[in-house]
Simulated assay, not measured.
Amino acid sequence: MPRTVSSLLLRACLLFAGGLCAFTATALETVRVGFQQSGTVQWELQLMQELGLAEREGVRLELVPLATKDATHIALQGGAVDVVVDDWLWVSRARDEGRPYTCVTHSLAAGALYARPDSGITRLADLAGKKLGVAGGAVDKSWLLLRAYAQKTLGVDLAQQVEPQYGAPPLLNQLALRGELPAVLNYWNYGARLSAAGFREVISMRTVLTGLGAPPGLPVIAWVFPDEFAAQHGETLRGFLRASRAAKQALATDDAVWERLRPLMQAANDTEFRSLRDTYRQGIPQHVGPQDALTASRIFALLARLGGEALVGRGTTLATGTFWTGYAD
């Protein structure tokens, strides 16, 4: 074949391939995901990117790291991002206030009450007269639920029995590790680090919820997005959620993928790394979908009674549409 013809054919093939790549790139629809830099959701998001799970679903992820939880709220409400992770209680409250957000369950991971091994605390009753670190504040839902459980099982109000020390999760961990707090009620990822350091799990929030009559599989946090985004980009959103589920499946079954995430996890040692991995896996839901609304609604009334408007807003029941009906697996 003459060189000129061969050259023309090669150029044509390159142009075709380039055009195909350009078409593929433009075919991907972008989902902007805001996440708290210190949180654990970035583990899943990074894996989605590294394994190309979103691209397989026709989605290009644009990851937007943010400094705080409040910053994720601001970014979502200001239209800077399309999706964040938050509490479904926040979604219900927003809907009651006329801000139409909806959600799909992301994780069932709940915290626990942890005690120093030298504290003498092995059961809830042993907290009497002691300091207790409480992540969040006086209306943190885990604290309110633990108080309700103590009232039901022991007939006491923990707020009157202990000296609650409210604070940020990492600060409470530091105080507990230094021996300044004998026990801490903290979120799951901080609890996993305490467990790796030899702290005893006194009672998990799963046990608390079961004792209060909550159904199994209660959502804790969810992917949150505006109704408008779901209406206009429903198939793109479903692709993102399918990619999320694929990442969770890999995290649930493949130890090797965790090695990719190890730098993000900032585990102090192998024990802490395994504790974070195993605790994360316990929070992966088997299935997600609109049925989660029924599960959440059954605990909403209790939370509304315990925390009042400061926790749930002016709603007395879970707001209609809190959980998106457009996706199930």
Rank of each mutant, 00 (worst) to 15 (best):
M1S: 12
P2C: 12
S7A: 14
L14P: 01
L15F: 05
A17W: 10
G19V: 08
C21R: 11
A22T: 01
F23C: 14
F23H: 14
A25I: 11
A25N: 10
A27K: 11
L28V: 09
V33R: 01
G34H: 08
G34V: 01
G34E: 09
Q37A: 10
S38C: 05
G39T: 04
W43A: 03
E44F: 04
Q46P: 01
L47V: 08
M48C: 09
L53K: 06
R56H: 15
R56I: 03
G58C: 06
V64R: 13
A67W: 11
A67Y: 10
T68S: 15
T68A: 12
A71P: 03
H73D: 07
L76K: 02
G78K: 11
D82N: 13
D82F: 08
V83C: 08
V84C: 02
V85Y: 09
S92F: 09
R95M: 02
R95L: 03
D96I: 00
D96S: 05
D96V: 00
E97R: 10
E97G: 05
P100K: 07
T102L: 14
T102K: 05
T105F: 06
H106L: 15
A109Y: 01
A110F: 06
G111I: 00
A115H: 07
D118Q: 08
S119M: 07
I121W: 02
R123K: 13
L124R: 01
A125G: 07
A125Y: 04
A128Q: 12
K130R: 15
K130W: 07
L132T: 00
G133I: 01
G136W: 04
G137N: 13
A138Y: 05
D140P: 02
L145M: 13
A148E: 11
L154A: 12
V156K: 06
L158C: 04
Q160F: 10
V162W: 00
Q165N: 06
G167P: 05
P169G: 13
P170G: 09
L171S: 07
N173H: 15
N173Q: 13
R178I: 03
R178K: 13
A183Y: 00
N186M: 04
N189H: 13
R193E: 12
S195A: 13
R200Q: 14
V202K: 05
I203M: 01
I203G: 00
R206I: 04
V208Y: 12
G213P: 06
G217D: 02
G217I: 05
L218P: 02
P219S: 08
I221P: 00
A222W: 01
W223Y: 15
F225Y: 13
E228R: 14
H233P: 01
G234E: 08
S244V: 02
R245W: 05
A246K: 11
Q249V: 03
A250Q: 15
L251R: 07
L251Q: 12
A252F: 01
T253R: 15
D254A: 09
D254H: 12
D254M: 06
A256K: 14
V257Y: 09
L264R: 09
D270V: 02
D270S: 12
T271R: 15
R277H: 04
R281Y: 08
Q282T: 11
G283C: 06
P285I: 01
D292K: 07
D292N: 12
D292W: 10
L294E: 14
R298V: 06
I299N: 02
L302D: 08
L303H: 01
L303A: 09
A310I: 00
A310V: 04
G313I: 04
G321L: 03
G326M: 00
D329T: 06
